[in-house]
Write a protein that binds this DNA or RNA. Structure first.
Length: 118
DNA sequence: GTTGTGACATCGC
DNA sequence: CGCGATGCCACAA
């Protein structure tokens, strides 16, 4: 069969879940893509392992559509750094304005700022 | 139908 | 703790 495309509705739903979770991230806190992916429920249509392997990137895909209502700035990678994308410089300042401290390498202390979803 | 890319994670050194 | 290399899925051309 050709490329096994996932159901658009399922994708959109997952995207919606990501946004809902990002909205719950309190000020001064951050979350990693992998953590968000693991926190949300897998589309079910696909294998669990597959989701675990690429769920993080799906979160990035949802962020690609980052509505202005979503504090996408609080979503960072597992390295505690802002992903290399347009506006990374801005994102850093936004987090600093919220009280997040960046070290010389532009990294934040995940063990301190990472939000466990409470 | 095939090829390449991506807002990443994890393992190894 | 930091950096390099590998693997994974879905999507666009």
């Amino acid at each position: 069969m050709s490329a096994q495309y996932l159901n658009p509705a399922t994708k959109a739903k997952f995207q919606e879940q990501v946004w809902a979770l990002v909205r719950r991230i309190p000020v001064g806190r951050v979350m990693t893509y992998g953590q968000i992916a693991e926190m949300l429920a897998p589309p079910g249509e696909m294998n669990m392992q597959s989701y675990l392997a690429f769920g993080a990137r799906w979160v990035g895909g949802a962020m690609a559509a980052c509505p202005e209502d979503i504090p996408w700035q609080r979503v960072i990678n597992a390295k505690g750094m802002v992903s290399a994308r347009a506006g990374a410089q801005i994102q850093r300042e936004l987090l600093q304005a919220e009280g997040v401290i960046f070290d010389d390498r532009g990294r934040v202390d995940l063990s301190r700022y990472r939000w466990n979803g409470e």
